[in-house]
Amino acid sequence: MQNAEEIYSKRKLKSSGQSTIVSISLVLFMLGCIGLVILISDRLAVFIKENVSMDVYLKDNVKEVNAIELQKGLDTKGFVKSTNFISKDQAIENLKKDLDPDENFVSFLGDYNPLPSSITVNLNAAYANNDSLVWIEKSILENKGVKEVVYQKSMIDMINENVRTISFYLLCFSGLLLLVAIALINNTIRLSIYSKRFIIKTMELVGATHWFIKKPFIYTGVLHGIYGSLIAILMLLGIMFLIQNEIPDLINFRDIELFGSLFGSVLFIGVLISWLSTSFAVSKYLKLRTGELY
């Protein structure tokens, strides 16, 4: 039967491993959160960019059949995400709705409809930049039925500028956080190895090779990295469920590839840092002479 001292000693060893795992998981969770923010902000940027529309106004003499043909033509273009044809009648109806309190104005026009038919083009996010827009505008204007192409140049500029700025700061912050994560995990592991430096030296003195000594430490370190990563991933899933409850559009759990890459990265970083830190820490104590351990 185990006595109290033995149980205490085993519990102490166990809890030292547990605190390493908790430290690793908290740091990885923090890193994962930043990853999640980057993914969500990327998604947000795409969402905003894809909602930027280009209005293609058609000449009055263009028949509806030709307009629809033009719309179909645009649908086949790679830069187009979606199109919406608005006929002259639809346009006046929309105007009526928009100017509801001032119906007199529309009735003043009588049967005359000054509004042109148009096609609203939503672009793919990758083309929502000024260079592409100028080129797209030019290519659409080549069609003889098109009168003019209207889009808010300043808004596109603003969106791109803001997305660029936010992405830059997020990347800087995540880079910094990655360094913090490496430093914290490395420190936690080094401390745990430090407490075993005399055991390492004893192993060396009884004739064990460096690799033989390192192997079980690396195995345990990697295992701690895996456990820490899995706990971090579970915590991230919890956060994601919370976000989805609040803002459903931001997180789509069907996007397995996207979130899989986030979880995969957390696991990879956790295992890699644990492995390297353990290996370096053990090597350090193997290189020291007995007298240098104190």
Binding site: L13, K196, I199, T202, L205, G207, F212
Partner: peptide
């Protein structure tokens, strides 16, 4: 060689059998 120290330098995280086994596995 066999090295014996004043402070024994046993592997305190494992039993006596495991201490002996460690040396055998290591060698």
């Amino acid at each position: 060689l066999g090295i014996v120290f004043q402070d024994f330098q046993l592997l305190n995280d494992r039993s006596i059998d495991d201490n002996i086994d460690f040396v055998m596995k290591a060698t």
